[in-house]
Amino acid sequence: MISPVLAVLEHDRGAMAEAAREALTFGRGLAESLGAGLEALLIGSDDADLVAEAGAYGAAAVHTVTHPVLSDFGPEAWGEAIARAAGMLKPAAVLAGGSERGNEVMAQAAARLDLPFVSNCTAIDPSGADGSGVDSGSGEWSITRIQWGGSLLEDVRLAAALPLVTCGLHAVASEPLPEPVSPAAAGLEIDLDPALARTVVKDRVVLEAGVTLPTAPVVVGGGRGVGSAEGFGPLEELAGLLGGRVGCSRAVTNNGWRPHSDQVGQTGTRIAPEIYIASGISGAIQHWVGAMGSKHILAINTDPEANMVVKADWAVIGDLHEVIPAISAEIRRRHP
């Protein structure tokens, strides 16, 4: 019997992260290629709703770890819990979502286990076949991961007693099973050092409620072409009409027109809206990798050859200062 794949369930005080659903979806594929089952590790909670949701995404069993030091998220405490659980459960692999927390806790676990950790994978072939379909017999895994935020792919060989991986954020679309399974939940007895509390969240500050950039269904983005901080007024108006948020490129942040928290890109926010309306944005690599998770893209640009126009589903060729107010006016006309 081949040991199961163990997926770490990222959650924030009981709310499951989309990255956890992606990890379970990706984990089902990995488990299948190993001929193994899929199980989940739930840290700092034994909440029945989380267990049920793990089942909806294919986990046959959920191992829970609760401990006073796990009262809130803490990278060291979570990393230690993963390392200890891996030692007890001896899975075929441990997998998490490629979110900021997912990569951080897997790095912590890998450091503790003194094992390699391959982050942000897009494809894993446990036979080591390197695309040829023939088992290399080396026991090494062939993995494809992202570099440069997704502008390049890197093929790697992984030699490890226990593979530790994350799947790239939005590298798979999360998908529940057609029929949910009801996983068995069982607590793991792990005694954690209270000193791990040194990196547990102490406090939280909520700045805004409601729609935020990573979760907005519509993002109206502006680049250098917007021209000034005031130039973002019409973009704000359109985003408001559509229940969305305004985003921007790195050039805009560097000019001080918008705060960095609005920046879409490799070093900013990865967005995944239903539609991204990108105006006055040329589409440099840095920006594109933050925008490529969008389901649809509409570009507004004076340059029909701009990278963003070429990569968009739809484009309007023209000056955003004229086009965006016209779109807002049209929306008002249809929905007075």
Partner: peptide, 21 residues
């Protein structure tokens, strides 16, 4: 991706609204 050009300038607004709908 085949980029569909919805139009030039503000006259493209109704086509954009159709896409959003």
């Amino acid at each position: 991706s085949e980029t569909a050009i919805l139009g030039h300038g503000p006259e493209a607004a109704p086509a954009v609204a159709d896409v959003l709908e």
